[in-house]
């Protein structure tokens, strides 16, 4: 547990990098994959996801913002009364983003 806390600079760095990626890239991807593809606004071409540079891009698009979200959620929930479970929250949030990163590597590699 102490180790998780001691990685503070790393978590803040990933938070920042993920915040930038989320700010620049996530809104257009919600429009493309969350609204455009299901509603048929544009021709969905998932084959593009199988190109290797695009796979690398997808990894950055998903993994870094996951760390950003984990850091924000971890620092916000104790502010609204969940301070007593701050340590399990750290494991859940940062552990979740680490697992999410590994799953992302596996998914984009097997596309």
């Amino acid at each position: 547990m102490r180790n998780i806390k001691n990685f503070e600079a790393l978590w803040w760095g990933l938070f920042s990098a993920g915040g930038v990626v989320a700010a620049f890239l996530v809104p257009i991807h919600i429009i493309l994959s969350g609204l455009g593809a299901p509603l048929g606004w544009l021709e969905d071409s998932p084959q593009v996801y199988q190109l290797w540079p695009v796979r690398l891009y997808l990894f950055v698009l998903i993994a870094l913002p996951l760390f950003h979200c984990a850091h924000r959620i971890y620092h916000t929930l104790p502010e609204i009364g969940l301070k007593v479970i701050s340590k399990p929250l750290a494991v859940l949030c940062y552990g979740g983003s680490l697992v999410g990163t590994l799953v992302t590597v596996w998914v984009v590699a097997s596309l």
């Binding site: 989320a22 996530v26 991807h29 919600i30 994959s33 969350g34 998932p46 996801y49 997808l58 698009l61 998903i62 913002p65 996951l66 950003h68 979200c69 984990a70 924000r72 959620i73 916000t76 999410g100 799953v103 992302t104 998914v107 984009v108 097997s110 596309l111």
Partner: peptide, 20 residues
């Protein structure tokens, strides 16, 4: 905002898994 962004990313990741 991070909660919604995280849920979106997980749903997007599932769609990529299905594509695989």
């Amino acid at each position: 905002t991070s909660v919604f962004i995280a849920i979106y990313l997980v749903v997007f990741l599932i769609s990529l898994y299905r594509l695989g």
